[in-house]
Amino acid sequence: MPIEVLISAPEAVAAEYIPHLERAFETEELEIALIRDPEAAGGAEYVIWHPEGPVTDYAGFPKLRAVLSLWAGVERALGNPTLTAPLCRMVDPSLTQGMIEYVTGHVLRYHLGMDAHILGQDGVWRNEVVPPLARDRRVGILGLGALGGDVALALGDLGFQVEGWSRRPREESRIPAHSGEEGLEALLARTEILISLLPGTAATENLLNRRTLAMLPRGAFLINPGRGGVVNDQALIDALDEGQLAHATLDVFRVEPLPPEHPFWRHPRITVTPHVGAETRADTASETIALNIRRDQDGEALLYRVDRAQGY
């Protein structure tokens, strides 16, 4: 008998994913009945979840074995009291590669001082400032999970002095890693370009505030493609106005789309990008979904299962 799988996603998203999912299920040798109508999916064993999909009440799925997210972030699912089945976040090779490319681009922009030349096409020959080589530039990464760890390694391979920080100690790797309050202070004190790839949890809310931003060397840069709530909006604006920070690139926000009246849009030292740092790609994400279902059916542990106590 086929395994019932419900895809709970907006119509356009579901239509994009279905052919890729069908190919991935075939590759994993899974006999799947892929269902789009929640009313016809009472026997579903798995729900493929998109935060804007139609399913909000999971009580009607008594056979549910797991909810498999199409997004890396699962904050909007964690608060659902009817979702008691295991919840798995999306870890997608294409998403990771997209984040590496986004972060690398903006790090190089700040490292090379590109804005002075791109924006200064006014006949002035500006060659008085020669950027250091990557080996002399200190980059700090907050969050060393699936995304942060790979971003750190990629920047290290380019020669940057990369250090990382996570809330909990990490196993040894090529990238020096800190943890805890003292570790955060030590990292910030020597970081010229700071990248936040932290998840959005109660413990990370407003982690970058007036006190912690002041720990950075004066004139540092911030890149945040992680979660908007990690940065205190007003503290960031103040740090930019006072010259403590030179510029910030922000890809994630507390409210999305970012409202037109928000001061970030008009601030001369803020670059707003519309949450494009890392998109889930249907082809490779479908492979992750199919692999996880196959593992669960074979009695193996689900990959990327969310620890509800930690929030990610």
Rank of each mutant, 00 (worst) to 15 (best):
I3H: 01
E171C: 03
A282G: 07
I195L: 12
R294L: 09
Y102G: 04
L95G: 03
L258I: 10
T280S: 15
T82S: 15
H275L: 12
A40Q: 14
K63M: 10
A12F: 08
H262G: 05
R269S: 14
V5Q: 00
R174A: 15
H178N: 11
R138F: 06
G311C: 03
M1Y: 06
L236W: 05
P259Y: 09
R254H: 08
S179P: 06
M90N: 10
E128V: 08
P93L: 07
D238P: 03
L303D: 08
L250K: 05
G156E: 08
R190W: 06
E287C: 10
L188D: 04
E29D: 15
R167G: 15
R76Y: 02
H106R: 08
A285Y: 05
R109L: 12
G299E: 11
A290E: 09
L112R: 15
S196W: 14
R170K: 15
A9M: 13
V103Q: 00
I118D: 05
E22Y: 02
P51W: 02
N209Y: 02
G148D: 07
T204Q: 07
W165Q: 04
E181G: 04
G148C: 12
L68E: 07
A248W: 00
R211Q: 15
L112D: 11
I193Y: 10
P38K: 12
W125C: 08
V255R: 11
T191R: 03
V139P: 09
V55D: 04
A66I: 10
L198Y: 01
Y17H: 09
A134Q: 12
I141C: 03
W265P: 11
F160I: 07
W49C: 05
W49D: 05
G277S: 15
L21R: 10
N127L: 06
I18L: 15
E22C: 08
L142Q: 00
P131C: 06
Q234H: 11
G123T: 02
T56F: 06
E128K: 06
S173Y: 09
L194D: 13
P54Y: 04
R138P: 05
E242N: 13
G53R: 01
T84G: 01
T273H: 12
A214N: 08
P259H: 13
R281A: 14
F221I: 00
L95R: 05
V13R: 14
L187M: 08
S196Y: 08
G105R: 00
G42V: 11
R167P: 08
T284M: 12
D241L: 04
D37E: 00
D136P: 02
P62C: 03
A154G: 01
C88W: 02
L188N: 01
G42K: 11
L208G: 07
D157G: 13
Y58H: 12
P176S: 02
E242K: 09
A282F: 02
M215H: 11
